[in-house]
Write a protein that binds this DNA or RNA. Structure first.
Lengths: 341, 341
DNA sequence: TCCTCCGGGATTATATTTGTCCCACTGGTA
DNA sequence: TACCAGTGGGACAAATATAATCCCGGAGGA
């Protein structure tokens, strides 16, 4: 059954709603039988004509009977209803989870994909595809997109496809010295390629702060230019990291790790470390967007998968990423466990 | 998977159509990749725009890739394709069976329902519903429908629902003295009630033939009237009986049974017994339609289920019932075994 | 070099869905 | 008895989705 549902979601997602509608109608009829078309429409908050179309179908399928007193489910309909309940439960699994997480995390929208990035790295591909789809939905002509680094974001860039013209991709924040293919600059370039747009780079060494940063900004027009572009981005797409993992990559690792641990940092995003309660406890020196400074930008889309990242996701969404969260089933279920308590 | 497929067929038949289309397109792409939209449309015998809509969907779902050389299936698409193949195989089970039987039996159309009437009498209900649906498809205003007797036909009558106005239901042939609820007269009346039409009766005692029949016809205007109506029927709906079972019900049973056995009678319909080769070996005395005399009427729909009836179905379709056969899975598979040899 | 076929865009024609009435009828109620 | 609320069914215009049929610039192959 699960296999069939997964296949259904994959190959004909537009018909998920049809099955849901018919299930709801059938259930409502069973609940209130004998009931009329109009009463049904009111109870289900659907148009009378829509209800009618579905109800005519159910009648033709022999699942309900029409009498002058109203409609009632047949014996066969009863049987189908029970089987359908199981199907819809599976079908609904994710959307229920999505709604629950959206509410509990205070995020506008949550998208859950199948799998668990920790258990099966291949599911990152699907996560990336889903995030790319969300991005496509928000993208318009001449927009600017700011992207962070990370392996997850690399998959998003890979899966992106053109949905608008003349987009500009910029790194969301100054560089973090890791594998080049996971750096924000690289990801911006790859994504620009996939989207058929332009990209700008942010050549900023790691760990530059204070006066040094001021000097750099004063002398580098390009840097100022890109920084300005970033702050006006229409869409920000960022990954979420585990605090300890991200900290371990930095030059000042030992000292930083201890400090973060002492302060209870759980997640990292856009150069800032935050506790599970949403308190920001450390900010790396750089330019560009910070997690606590997303006021000037448009939509913010966070992407992260794998159950190990659950706490980090909770932390980052609590601290500021308020629009869309794209995650996977493994992380989603772990998040639910966390926020339950 | 089987359960889900059955559920889909029941609750969202349009879903299976969509899935089939997308499966066919995906398979065709895999077969001919890289291939263009137009070439696909020709190969699949579909409109270019239709192919395009589906292909756009498959692209958005990440199952195929577009390149200037044409479309090709992605790795993910490959996986989905394999799962889909399993789904469609289950789905197609019946329609493949239907087509095979239609061809081998020389019948225009075969409809197979789930179950086996012998193993599970409840499946007769579904058989009846399917037959009623077929009937509804052929029915028009002011038409005349001739129906035979039998328990199967009783279910058909029960499941009938109005699809046209001013229909007249008549018994297809003079009475056979059995349970009143299975007599053609009764069934005509029930069906007329369900269809909101009129019915005519054929009050003819069993086993009346020769001179006695002539005398009756000469004196009974109603009889002549109904007989004429029957011969111009637009749709004939009849059951199929096992030769030995039907013969056993008759008054002259012992002698008749032996004779039929000697002549190799397998099936009975409309008062005539026929061998599996289609040769009619005995005709009961009565008026109305005979199996070998369906020239003047419109569509002929035969309804019978249960694997024990397989040979009888083969016999009757061979003898003359040439339009539609509605049967169940049990009978259908048994028929396939018979006609294979 | 041409020439075919590719994906994508655009426009028009056609179906389908949807909202919104009305109608005749039925069962319960005053 | 006469009503009345609620039923399924019918009808029709408006809105929307779908389909047919072009055309276009461009990439590969001959």
């Amino acid at each position: 059954m699960e296999k069939a549902v997964a296949l259904h979601r994959r190959i004909a997602p537009e018909l998920v709603g049809v099955i849901e509608d018919r299930f709801n109608i059938l259930r409502q009829i069973q609940f209130a039988q004998p009931v009329g078309r109009r009463a049904l429409a009111v109870a289900l908050d659907m148009g009378e004509r829509v209800v009618r179309a579905q109800v005519d179908f159910l009648k033709a399928a022999g699942l309900i009977d029409f009498t002058p007193l109203g409609m009632s489910v047949t014996e066969e309909g009863q049987g189908v209803l029970e089987e359908l309940a199981g199907y819809v439960r599976v079908l609904h699994g994710f959307s229920a989870l999505e709604e629950e997480l959206a509410e509990r995390l205070g995020v506008r929208r949550v998208v859950v994909t199948r799998g668990d990035a920790d258990a099966d790295p291949a599911s990152l591909r699907e996560l990336g595809r889903a995030a790319a789809g969300v991005l496509g939905g928000y993208l318009g002509d001449n927009m600017t997109v700011a992207v962070s680094g990370g392996s997850t974001m690399a998959w998003v860039a890979e899966a992106a496809s053109a949905a608008a013209r003349d987009v500009t991709i910029v790194p969301a924040r100054g560089g973090l010295g890791e594998k080049v293919e996971y750096q924000a600059n690289t990801i911006a370039a790859v994504m620009a390629g996939k989207l058929g747009g332009r990209y700008r780079m942010l050549h900023l060494p790691d760990g530059v702060g204070g006066e040094a940063l001021d000097v750099l900004l004063a002398h580098d027009a390009n840097l100022r230019d890109v920084d300005e572009l970033i702050r006006k981005a229409d869409v920000v797409l960022h990954g979420i990291g585990l605090a300890e993992v991200m900290a371990a990559r930095r030059v000042i690792a030992p000292a930083l790790i201890n400090e973060l641990k002492a302060r209870g940092a759980a997640g990292e995003a856009l150069g800032q470390y935050t506790t599970i309660g949403g308190e920001i406890v450390y900010t790396t020196d750089s330019i560009g967007l910070r997690l606590d400074d997303l006021g000037g930008v448009g939509r913010v889309i966070a992407v992260a998968g794998g159950r190990r990242k659950a706490a980090a996701i909770v932390a980052v969404t609590a601290a500021g990423s308020r629009d869309v969260l794209v995650t996977d089933e493994g992380a989603a279920r772990a998040i639910r466990e966390i926020i339950k308590s």
